[in-house]
Design a binder for these strands. Sequence first.
DNA 1: CGATAACTTGATGCCCCTCAACATCTGTGG
DNA 2: CCACAGATGTTGAGGGGCATCAAGTTATCG
Lengths: 253, 253
Amino acid sequence: MRAICTRCGTCPIRYQSICGALTDDELSRLSVISRPRVVGAHQPIFRDGDEAEQCFNVISGVVKLVKTLADGEQHIVGLIYPPDFLGRPLGDRHTYTAEAATDVEICGFPRGAFEAVLEAQPKLERKILEFTVRELDLCREWTLLLGRKSSYQRVGSFLYMVARRTARSGYGYRHEGVVRFRLPFTRAEIADYLGLTLETVSRQFSRLKATHIIAMPASRDVVVPDMALLARAARIDAGGDGRYGAEPGRRPL
Amino acid sequence: MRAICTRCGTCPIRYQSICGALTDDELSRLSVISRPRVVGAHQPIFRDGDEAEQCFNVISGVVKLVKTLADGEQHIVGLIYPPDFLGRPLGDRHTYTAEAATDVEICGFPRGAFEAVLEAQPKLERKILEFTVRELDLCREWTLLLGRKSSYQRVGSFLYMVARRTARSGYGYRHEGVVRFRLPFTRAEIADYLGLTLETVSRQFSRLKATHIIAMPASRDVVVPDMALLARAARIDAGGDGRYGAEPGRRPL
DNA sequence: CGATAACTTGATGCCCCTCAACATCTGTGG
DNA sequence: CCACAGATGTTGAGGGGCATCAAGTTATCG
């Protein structure tokens, strides 16, 4: 099984993902059951209500977590960037649909075999707990955004978040403080994530451009000359990772 | 250390909490380090940014998780009912303030000792992961509410959620299908949880009373004659635990 | 029983949704 | 290369839901 070991050896998220908890030897047990795969943009990875047969490491690209209401309305409840973990580590059924927002490389682990490895490797389970706790933190931050921010601040916060996560996962560019990245989302998708309509999202993009907080050479290309300015517009405390501060007032327009 | 064993032996959440993963013998190791304590209503349990010195089982009462913005505005990012787990199981600092909404019985575990027990008892860590995953599910459901529901549906969903969680934790009354419980929150707190103002919350209570979906003998006492009706008003699918369905249209008023 | 907090209800204004028209981008086939 | 169609994005006009401001009522507690 030489090829398999090599596979993990060249994995770009070898040390950042949950696999970072394992030594090379320990990892080989996981690599035996892993199923790397490429999923094309807009293809589903699993669906809400499906049996949770696999869980995944996201190696590259972006995955959106979607809940669909009966009337067809969609809401995006989360975004997964590398090197994050995707799916239900334990148990039963998925509670949302996971869909590739871009072309995505994922590494799948069949449930039964994965749980067996977990049993034998408490360090791995610990890592999954860490990732889940962080995900929960992000989700709670997001409820704050949805509960308390204006549309302008929401779009600003969104761009700030995407900029940071894009950079951390190795894409996008940073040149003398200027951050540049490509949005892998339509206006409608952004709206579904922010609890707004696509028209409102578009208008707030225009406002951010008008105030020179961002520039957009093309409708999906974003340039942020000063991240701190963007953070201020979005009412994000520059210090933390989405902690709030400064800027009093609810709807500063 | 007979007294300590007895203490856990009479614990009302012995089998529902994370401790349910352990045999009596295994539990004794935890009981040695546990610090049961009563916290009065409106008292903080820990604060945003504090070092996470302890985590807790919530034995009775309700705990609210609060983030405070710089301008003093508050947002409630979660509610913890028995037999849930409270605090950061791993690592560093709290990311929100935990405050007793009612008088609360909690069982504290000092971090260092707790992690040692975790190390020795993978089953316990597994249980914590389960609880965290469930918490994450609830949080994602909540983002859907904040992103997509009208004020009327939000208040309805809130009452539905409180009714169920109150019942499950052993309080409240259920008599021939009629559910009855006491709200441990002010209108302002409910507003902070739902991303609304207290006036709007009050108005939606009035509307729910006017349509006879609920009755309120006193401003904190709620009677729900038919939970299914409430669920429909709140646009909650009766089948699941907060899954959505039926009722098309975004703002049915 | 007086003081304060909690709650209710009304009037007004604004943010964002809705509906609509138009512009721009993308890809396909003649 | 251009024509064309469909998807995506932008901008405007109008209306409604919720915030804001304000006043009055009820509950809570020393």
